[in-house]
């Protein structure tokens, strides 16, 4: 009776909406998001961060009034081109595995005279009035690896250990929601709401995901780095806060970066 009519009306409404959507040339919601992303490719605001980062790299700064042009990112002092494609890696002078941000902190401390606390403070920007130097430097350095194949080393025992520890952290479930990275990123073809989730346990998913960070996040209005991505994932996992350039962040980055080996680096990118 009434419910039958309502169901019939709903059926008609659904058909109408589908017809209208097809007439407008609209695909599924996920397809439309892909179209939106394609339209954003031109004029990526990340270039503004890249330009600022390049200036910062060359500028004499800190108590020692030195530039970062002698900073060794793994390919020799001052060599920026291709450096990100081989990070994280073991550095003999620090006797530990370091990712890009940790290495930048290292150079800021040893060459520019900043304290470690100063180098690490305010790592993530929040508007024009609260810019993060680190994000600009990351944008510049990563832009110099664009088009280069990921080639993260696994020869040093500490590199191998960092990978294995990173893998354990990836599967570590905790907090009130029992979440771990694998909860969202351990399966093929899944999405959270309408956001497709890369399967980071497989080479294909790891490659697609890792090679597109850092990225200008339109919703944030900021250039966001991989350190930021990890930090924000853990926040949403209901964990306490992941410390910037911490050991766990390096190990996890090692796990994901090495899984992406062989893929062409394609960042700074632009995302929703």
């Amino acid at each position: 009776m009434r419910s039958h009519h309502r169901r019939a009306a709903q059926g008609v409404a659904a058909l109408f909406i589908l017809a209208a959507a097809t007439a407008l040339g609209q695909g599924s919601p996920v397809d439309e998001i892909a179209k939106y992303r394609a339209a954003l490719q031109d004029g990526n605001p990340a270039e503004l961060w890249e330009a600022r980062g390049e200036d910062m790299w060359k500028q004499a700064r800190g108590p020692k009034k030195a530039s970062l042009e002698r900073c060794d990112l793994g390919l020799g002092p001052g060599v920026v081109k291709g450096a990100y494609s081989e990070l994280p890696k073991y550095f003999a002078d620090a006797d530990r595995v370091q990712d890009l941000e940790t290495r930048l902190v290292w150079c800021m401390v040893t060459q520019q005279g900043y304290t470690e606390a100063d180098a690490k403070k305010n790592p993530f920007g929040a508007g024009n009035d609260k810019k993060a130097d680190m994000e600009a430097l990351v944008a510049y350095v990563t832009s110099e690896s664009r088009g280069i194949r990921m080639n993260v080393p696994q020869s040093h025992p500490k590199e191998q250990e960092a990978y294995r520890i990173g893998e354990k952290i990836f599967y570590y479930r905790g907090g009130p929601h029992d979440f771990g990275c694998a909860t969202c990123h351990g399966d093929d073809g899944k999405r959270i709401r309408l956001q497709d989730l890369p399967n980071l346990t497989k080479v294909d998913g790891a490659r697609k995901a890792y090679t597109t960070w850092p990225a200008y996040r339109v919703s944030q209005g900021e250039l966001r780095s991989f350190q930021w991505r990890l930090n924000d994932c853990f926040r949403q996992q209901r964990f306490p806060e992941l410390e910037f350039a911490s050991d766990a962040s390096i190990a996890l980055t090692m796990f994901l970066a090495r899984n992406a080996n062989g893929a062409e680096f394609d960042a700074p990118a632009i995302k929703r």
Binding site: E161, R164, I165, K168, I169, Y172, R173, G174, G175, P176, F234, R238, F239, P240, E241, L242, E243, S246, D247, A248, S249, A251
Partner: peptide
């Protein structure tokens, strides 16, 4: 051994913030 190291590293790499205390890392 690796699992133990990972758990220790995890706990040393996080800080309490807002309502999320470090106890959330205890499994």
């Amino acid at each position: 051994g690796i699992a133990a190291k990972a758990e220790a590293m995890l706990k040393a790499s996080f800080k309490a913030r807002g309502q999320a205390g470090l106890d959330r890392l205890d499994q």
